[in-house]
Design a protein around this nucleic acid. Structure first.
Lengths: 189, 189
DNA sequence: ATATATATAGACCACTTGATATATTTTTGT
DNA sequence: ACAAAAATATATCAAGTGGTCTATATATAT
């Protein structure tokens, strides 16, 4: 049964990576099975509902990988403003890398799949919530009042996703740097 | 020759609306000609390079419509923070409307088409620049120093696009309201 | 009025899409 | 060892894709 997990994970990892990088509609199932070297039969065995089920699993996987990365990187600095700024500057630094661990933007995939079906939208919402909550917990840990932490953490998430989108479109991470510079202003007011 | 403009514009308007709402890859040429009630021959007569050329024209059109809207709405309040906040709250208010004038998010379309080809990326960059520049000019008019205005206007654009993306995914405009509340903090620091 | 450019109309094409069906192999439990 | 379940492997499908082609209609200009 080790094989099961193997193939399933290979398909899922490949799908998540391609969906995140190129988008949902631009990624064909054939591309996924080719890249993951798995037959189509296995795809539909492990994901009987096909592409949509794969999308839910992919966005969830991508989200939890991002969440882990945020958590790790925020732990490096005790000051929350510095921690978040530090994290964003790292995103800018690793902007060119194709490494799937550095694929931080969820907007493209989420914008594409959320309207398809409620189950897909719900998965996206959950992933967004997970990411924002990671900032929230950092702020709470650092003594921010609950209300303020709730507010700011959402804004942080919005700013990072927005900056990533603009950076991807322009193929230039300077917008991430600009956002990083504004974080302290946001936290200290 | 009145007919020419008519058909061309009908195709372009339809394409822009569908691309913006549903995305580039999710929108088929057949859907565009059906919805615009134009034959395929006309599409390829007016846009010989097919879907990609249509995408460039569409993102440019959508961008200039958004730019006009921003400009109009920013003119309502003399105080820049109030003007921008007012504009964003209007976006939140009209979130449910399907009216193409209220389709303000460019992220989905831009994220999809920018990687296809440099000419498409360039068109997206130009549109982004156009929008950010509208905030910039408002800030300059209100006496902001050049450097600060440059910085802030980009951040505003990023925050609004980010908030629109999150709102679209969640199908809930509250994130726009949250961003609106932060504008004054950004401008006064 | 007629020739010419402009524009419309839609049939058609090769190709890809997501999905299904069926056959085969591999693993597991007894 | 053997039966049952799990998983893999393809061939195949209808529907849809973007794009091309040729024929026709509609203006425009002289």
């Amino acid at each position: 049964m080790g094989a099961k997990t193997d193939t399933r994970e290979k398909i899922l990892n490949t799908a998540a990576s391609l969906f995140q990088k190129n988008g949902y509609h631009a990624t064909g199932l054939n591309e996924i099975i080719r890249e993951s070297e798995s037959p189509k039969g296995s795809l539909y065995y492990h994901f009987p509902n096909g592409k949509e089920e794969l999308a839910i699993a992919a966005v969830t996987l991508a989200g939890s990988m991002i969440q882990e990365q945020i958590e790790e990187k925020l732990a490096r600095d005790s000051d929350p403003a510095q921690a978040i700024k530090h994290y964003i500057l790292d995103l800018a630094d690793s902007f060119e890398e194709e490494n799937p661990d550095n694929q931080v933007s969820l907007s493209l995939l989420a914008l594409e799949i959320a309207p398809i079906r409620d189950s897909l939208r719900d998965a996206c919402k959950q992933v967004f919530e997970l990411c924002a909550d990671t900032y929230y917990r950092k702020l709470i840990t650092c003594g921010f009042p609950e209300e303020k932490a709730k507010e700011i953490s959402s804004i942080i998430f919005v700013m990072i996703e927005g900056a990533m989108s603009v950076s991807l479109v322009r193929n230039d991470p300077v917008m991430l740097v600009a956002v990083a510079e504004q974080i302290s202003i946001l936290l200290n007011n």
